[in-house]
Design a protein around this nucleic acid. Structure first.
Lengths: 336, 336
DNA sequence: AATTAGCACTTAATAGTTGACAGTGCTAAA
DNA sequence: TTTAGCACTGTCAACTATTAAGTGCTAATT
């Protein structure tokens, strides 16, 4: 258990380090924060905090830096989680409510990375958990057609395809009917399998069945594909802790690997902590910290994340993230 | 006018520098390339090439590095523009022909950045030069609908929208009819203006006209939006000349500015040269070189570009780029 | 008993020094 | 015209002081 003064010192060190990215010494701490004791006392307390694993030294005679555990303690017990009025105002102007729903999520992600000067990303909503509501197919010319695939959640995906020779309007109509009869209500995940099942039926009734068939498979694969959106990756170039090019390469490799982000939060290998309001989650992996928050729209859920150096303004980021997820959810309810 | 030997030396320096990224001295040149003269002669020739502005020194007693003008001379007169068999084989396997047309261009871009280990990007085809062929609008639920917008080139864009209250199927049908009557054949560029013209007509016939109206405006804006696709931006992290973080920031800023890439090639401020086969174009801007090649599909044109350090393997890149543009064009013709 | 002043000690970062080395330009000889 | 030879130049890496920031400990103070 920490004493009041120890907590004040820890809080000051974390916040000062978040600002400056430099190790903090007893003297600067005394000057910046009006603690009514001497630097020697602070040194003693710092020493204690270090034995408790909350602080670290970069070398024997350097100032202190918060350890991951120190950040964790800070987030759990010490952080004030309120935005000041100026920041609240900024949030409200950024999140104006006339964004089209399809873009709300990506736009939120963009705003997030802009406001934090960090990288943010959004996972899902996972299209695989939706089911098929309609397939519409209509001729474009004598040798081409557009298919529009719509899910029960109202997402739409379209795909143009081209036939080597003419295709009749009736053929397309027959095909649409067959597909709708057999596939409506199927989970997107299972559509490709089911498509294979009804292949013989298509074969009987439709002339250019294999072209149509392949086009549909492709369209559904596109639907199910990655679903990870990044914003502000280059902000990492401006973080002093990532000024080493080797470190940057590592981080960009992380960004490139979309499977990594899907796994994050599911494995228990990393230090993890719930944010104070119990909505978000904080994870430290290698040298980055990830703040994440889940949003629900309809049956589906998605995850908004902010990635940055361990030294990041948790307070501010958790609040903004919270605002963003609430915004997404509210927009969804409104439009629905 | 350069002598034969001077050209051989220049060619050797450019190619050696492309390989090693190090300044080349007279001695290494003699060892690597079997020139039947002494290092002193080479030094004399190098000196001459420097006075002609084809070579540069990084400092008074360093080896030589090609200048921009040197690269230019190399590309214009000295470069052999053929790929070896291995590279040709690699190209053919990468560009397998069963890519769906919509993805052909982006996929080509990805392959390009993979093969070159550089950044590649594609501009256009410029949707604004297409005209509207159909608008299809169908109800999704009682309070939502999908609009599908199709151009004469067969591109499709879809947009879901939501009404605050119920909307009848007839209303949607009427709206579709009006829009088709007035807008079919209009250039995408002009659609928004024309949409404003027919606003009064919509107003008379359709109940929720302003929601429909806004949704369409948004859909068309999306159509006309950026249209720049990047691939392999992080490859820049592995170029030795960009190991300086300040340089990297500069380059990433360039990448972020999509308007810049649209302008490139149109301004005459930068050093520019046609590639030997007269298809592509080479531009040097700041510390990057840009190789670009235009492809035509139907009435439209697009531009494929590869971006890298000045020291890049022009020979290889020009050939690959050439292959890629031809591939895109052939795929288009085939599907059409 | 807790706090603090004072001091010896540690380490990183900076600047200067040195020698090796890679490369040039020039001169004089072939 | 070419080349051997040599003096000269700038970079790089290793080494050495020097300084500045910060600690831990001890003894004095409250």
């Amino acid at each position: 258990m920490l004493s009041r003064r120890q907590e004040v010192i820890l809080k000051a060190i974390v916040e000062e380090f978040i600002k400056t990215a430099e190790p903090i010494g007893s003297k600067t701490l005394l000057e910046q924060y009006g603690l009514n004791c001497s630097s020697a006392t602070i040194r003693n307390e710092m020493n204690y905090l270090e034995t408790e694993g909350l602080l670290e030294k970069t070398h024997a005679s350097s100032g202190r830096v918060p350890s991951t555990y120190g950040y964790r303690y800070y987030v759990e017990y010490l952080m004030d989680s309120f935005l000041d009025e100026k920041e609240k105002y900024q949030l409200q102007t950024f999140f104006s409510s006339d964004l089209p729903l399809e873009n709300v999520i990506q736009a939120s992600c963009d705003i997030l990375s802009n406001m934090t000067n960090l990288t943010s990303l959004v996972l899902g909503p996972d299209a695989n958990r939706q089911s098929l509501a309609h397939i519409k197919l209509f001729p474009l010319s004598e040798t081409s057609a557009v298919a529009v695939i719509i899910t029960d959640q109202g997402h739409a995906e379209n795909k143009t395809f081209y036939f080597a020779d003419r295709v009749s309007v009736e053929d397309i109509q027959t095909c649409t009917n067959i597909l709708n009869d057999y596939l409506v209500g199927t989970l997107i995940n299972d559509v490709v399998a089911k498509l294979n099942e009804i292949k013989p039926i298509l074969e009987r009734s439709v002339k250019r069945h294999e072209i149509l068939f392949n086009a549909f498979v492709q369209a559904f694969v596109k639907f199910a594909s990655d679903n990870v959106y990044f914003s502000g990756a280059t902000n990492m170039l401006y973080q002093p802790e990532f000024s080493d090019i080797e470190k940057l390469r590592e981080i960009m490799k992380m960004f490139d690997d979309s499977t990594l982000w899907k796994k994050i939060g599911t494995s228990e290998s990393s230090v993890k902590v719930k944010s104070p309001d119990n909505k978000g989650e904080l994870i430290w992996v290698n040298d980055v910290a990830i703040v994440s928050s889940i949003f629900n729209i309809g049956e589906e859920e998605g995850k908004l994340m902010v990635v940055g150096p361990s030294r990041m303004n948790y307070n501010k980021i958790v609040s903004i993230l919270d605002f963003a997820t609430q915004f997404i959810e509210s927009q969804y309810k409104k439009k629905k």
